[in-house]
Design a protein around this nucleic acid. Structure first.
Lengths: 239, 239
DNA sequence: CGGTGTGTTGACTACTCTCAACATATGTGG
DNA sequence: CCACATATGTTGAGAGTAGTCAACACACCG
């Protein structure tokens, strides 16, 4: 709501390789800097956008952690994803000019505001940006396909194992540990994402601890046996 | 595999309003005709593309009915969608230049082949095409959000009711009946899509029949009480 | 006219949910 | 800074939904 009016630039942002195309010429980089109109801070618990709100911009997460969730008419809601630095949110709003989900900050966050008409304009001029936008949307489609596979065919342990592996993998790509992570979401939010009740998430964590696969201390998780997690997700077929 | 080489044109296709943007000028329409390189027939049971294949084109379905499905490493697979005339498949391939799912024809079908580099080229020139491509991808993201809600939070009856309502709604938009439909997929494929076993799908159909909500004769389904289906999907909260 | 694929139904199992109690954090106001 | 209120997390017992396994019925196809 209170965009900083200082000039921001992708060209010297250390997250550029995550949210922007690679291999740009200097001239193209100059143009790309205009994609970001401003930055916006979002306090923990606050929404970046809400279902029903007018869509104007995509948001690149600079710092912080978000969840997106959709709601059915009768009030059930479903976490559709967790997003971290370098990831883009808001793609749901393009089709109807209105957002169809909520994006909520799970910790204090800052995002780059990228007005979508400016993105469209620039991507007509900079081919690699056009391609990049297409890839980002396609990636989201493929990610959701994976979640559908998880929700449609996996059991609780498999879901949680897949979830943990996915999280550490993304964190590791951002320079964090491969084996330690701090969950920014509650058991209930994990459960919603995985199609499980919070008690089932808690029990499954406990089972992993019993089996010596992870250590859990509230939201601090240390993975002791990555292979075991992988085996749970993709059970070896016995001959 | 055997594309017809006859000139095809979107400009006089009666499905245009489903797969192409509205309100094009004559000049733009001319250009748009070049998006479709050829047509391709796909026999029932054959694949339009497969996981791992190189991505080159999007496909607009002219006639017929498809399913898309992803597979996990250990062989489980999950139907991620059913597509009918006027809908676009292949978006999953953009991000990595390779498809990540299979598209299988559930009845003899014909598709328009739209090379993606041509789409990108043209959408730099025709703004409404650019916007249209973005909307199609965003629509797919929103659709998948809905499926995640279904898979993550609904019970078997709710899932099947939502599935039937979605199908008739889309068929009705194509001029078919609001109350009668022929399923082009097996109980197992419905089950895979809905995260249920085929026996559960069958039992749930039987329950709907008992309750007088639908008539089912193999794959022929007649909806007797649409309101009841809607109530199942969105249970009324009692005060 | 069999053979195969698909669909239905029954009996039993098992996984996850529900409800509940309790434990442990987190945060706020006195 | 502590006390209390609230939010979050854990665990247990029992219930219920969907899964598994199996038998059978029906349709479609060569």
């Amino acid at each position: 709501m209170n965009p900083h009016t200082i000039k921001v630039a992708c060209s010297n942002c250390n997250l550029r390789e995550l949210c922007m195309p690679l291999g740009l010429s200097a001239a193209e980089l100059d143009k790309i800097d205009d994609v970001v109109a401003s930055r916006r801070k979002v306090k923990r618990g606050a929404t970046l956008f809400r279902n029903g709100e007018k869509f104007t911009s995509l948001f690149a997460i600079r710092t912080g952690f978000f969840k997106t969730c959709v709601a059915s008419e009768d009030g059930r809601d479903q976490v559709t994803g967790f997003q971290m630095a370098g990831e883009i949110v808001g793609l749901d709003g393009i089709v109807n000019d209105h957002h169809t989900c909520d994006a909520v900050a799970l910790e204090d966050a800052e995002v780059c505001v990228m007005p979508f008409d400016r993105i469209e304009e620039l991507s007509r001029e900079v081919n690699s940006l056009q391609r990049h936008v297409h890839k980002i949307m396609s990636r989201e489609i493929v990610r959701e396909n994976g979640v559908m596979l998880l929700l449609g065919s996996m059991r609780a342990e498999e879901r949680l194992a897949a979830f943990l592996l996915n999280l550490v993998q993304r964190l590791h790509a951002r320079g964090f540990s491969q084996s330690e992570l701090v969950l920014r979401m509650t058991r209930e939010e994990i459960g919603s994402y995985l199609g499980l009740k919070l008690e089932t998430v808690s029990r499954t964590f406990s089972k992993f601890v019993e089996d010596g696969i992870v250590e859990v201390k509230q939201r601090h998780v240390r993975i002791l046996n990555t292979e075991a997690l992988k085996d749970i997700v993709n059970p070896k077929v016995c001959n």
